[in-house]
Write a protein that binds this DNA or RNA. Structure first.
Length: 220
DNA sequence: ACCCAGGTGGCCC
DNA sequence: GGGCCACATGGG
């Protein structure tokens, strides 16, 4: 009967020290991060890289350039990430917004009080809670814990938090881990990297750093 | 021929 | 407020 040990935050701390998160979310500009945040929805990062590269090679990784682009051309660049009609439209709307309301100046768009930026993002089509938080953290540099499906899955399996919802997870992590952008990034990266290992699908997964925290001591 | 991947929005009850 | 569903490509 394995009693559970520790808190969910402690589990996250442990995987944070176990995974290398140095090369997490590579980028050449803040606008590229915003585009990537939309493109990565329900998709692997490798597919996002192809799309970004297609856009980079055509020199359209700016709000004004995307704004002026034919939607069919944008669709072709974004195609490898799936949902390409939705995503191309949503990216172009974001670009339109920055082009129109901030003269195409990404810094101007991002460098505002976090609450103001957040509510702006929430109004946009295709930007839900996770994409909003990814932009707040990675593009704007605000300390926000990002809750993705990996976080929810892990939290549910550990059984250390009740109830398990995106909001309870976010609040728990922000209360129990240091709220610096760096910590938020490392936590998010580590949770995803751990999730991709699919420890949960392998009984007695030998490499899992959380083996002893599992309710039944078997799988996570 | 399945299943899954760093979500979101629309509809239904 | 929760439970489905469509959206679409790429890789195992």
């Amino acid at each position: 009967m394995g009693e559970t040990k520790g808190t969910f935050a402690q589990a996250v701390e442990r995987i944070m020290s176990h995974y290398d998160t140095k090369r997490w979310w590579p980028h050449e500009s803040r606008f590229e991060i915003m585009v990537g945040a939309i493109l990565v929805q329900r998709t692997r990062w490798e597919n996002v890289e192809r799309a970004i590269e297609a856009m980079r090679s055509r020199g359209v990784l700016t709000p004004s350039a995307i704004s002026a682009l034919d939607i069919l051309e944008l669709e072709q660049m974004v195609r490898p990430t799936g949902f390409f009609r939705q995503k191309s439209r949503r990216i172009q709307r974001l670009a339109h917004h920055i082009h129109l309301y901030h003269k195409g100046d990404v810094t101007c768009f991002l460098e505002r009080p976090p609450q103001e930026l957040a509510s702006d993002l929430e109004r946009m089509d295709g930007i839900g809670p996770e994409t909003r938080d990814a932009i707040l953290l990675y593009a704007a540099g605000h300390p926000v814990m990002i809750v993705d499906t990996y976080a929810i899955r892990l939290c549910g399996r550990l059984g250390l938090l009740d109830p398990v919802t995106p909001l309870t997870i976010k609040n728990h992590l922000m209360q129990h881990l240091s709220t610096t952008p760096q910590t938020c990034r490392r936590a998010h990266a580590a949770i995803v990297e751990h999730g991709k290992e699919r420890c949960c699908a392998v009984p007695r997964c030998s490499g899992c750093p959380l083996l002893d925290m599992c309710e039944h001591g078997a799988t996570i």
